[in-house]
Amino acid sequence: MTTMHSPALEVAVRPRRRMPKATLLIGLVLLLVLIVAAIFPQYLARYSPTDFDYEAILQGPNAKHIFGTDNFGRDILSRIIYGTRVDMQIAIFTTLFPFIFGTLLGALTGYLGKWSDAVVGRIADLVVVFPFLVLVIAIVAVLGPGLNNMYIAVSAVGWVSYWRLTRGEVLTQKKAEYAQAGRVLGYSPSRILLRHLLPNAVSPAIVYLMTDMSLGILLGASLGYLGLGAQPPTPEWGVMVADGKNFMATAWWISTFPGLALTLAGVTFSLIGDGLADALRPRA
């Protein structure tokens, strides 16, 4: 390993460059693109995402169909654009409930401490020994395939990270001076909690929310691929990858482009997450 020989330790502790802002900016621009595609797919896509066109089956990328067509003659690019709405919806609904529930619970048990904290802690310990994907697909298997059941399953499991982050932050903040000061001033506990502790304690959870959204998209797409999430003919990216898996040898574009869309969406959220983490960190 080359790193061992160099006088590695004499090497620069270079000051951070202004990169964080750039990552955040690129992430936000990409996010804007995704949002526009999700809201106005009809203005961006040239074709219907679901109508069959037997004249145009399995065409490779060409001038009329930039990303080609699938075995039903549907335009891949148009389906990807319409798919944005589905996958953004997945990103939001797989994270929103865990975020709200986990953050509030974290603030509450972090503030109250004692038995409430211990009880939720034990429950969290229990939840995390179930492999996330396994538990989600087990729940989906019981409730039946589909996006709504997936959201229920994810909500039952996903709150733990938010609870941990917020609870830890509240515990630290509780010791900070203004909470003490608030108590001295005679503010009610709920006021201290909601007005002072929560707003300060929520920032790690917000940073994690971004990472979690990219994980949520991956999860939704994985279930879609396995046939347990969005159901065909919904233009969901994971479903689209699965649609093309039997054509990989002859029509690679069917799976490849939706997969790239997924990756791009994942990168978007993690860039924003990293950018936010840097921006919210007190010192570089």
Binding site: R17, S222, G238, L262, T263, L271
Partner: peptide, 29 residues
Amino acid sequence: VRRNTWVDSLIRAVFQVGLSLPGFYVALQ
């Protein structure tokens, strides 16, 4: 060791993308 240089940025960027690549997609490709 090479933190905040292009080497570091490259490694991090590659794995950043790696983290966003769906497993089933990598497998398929």
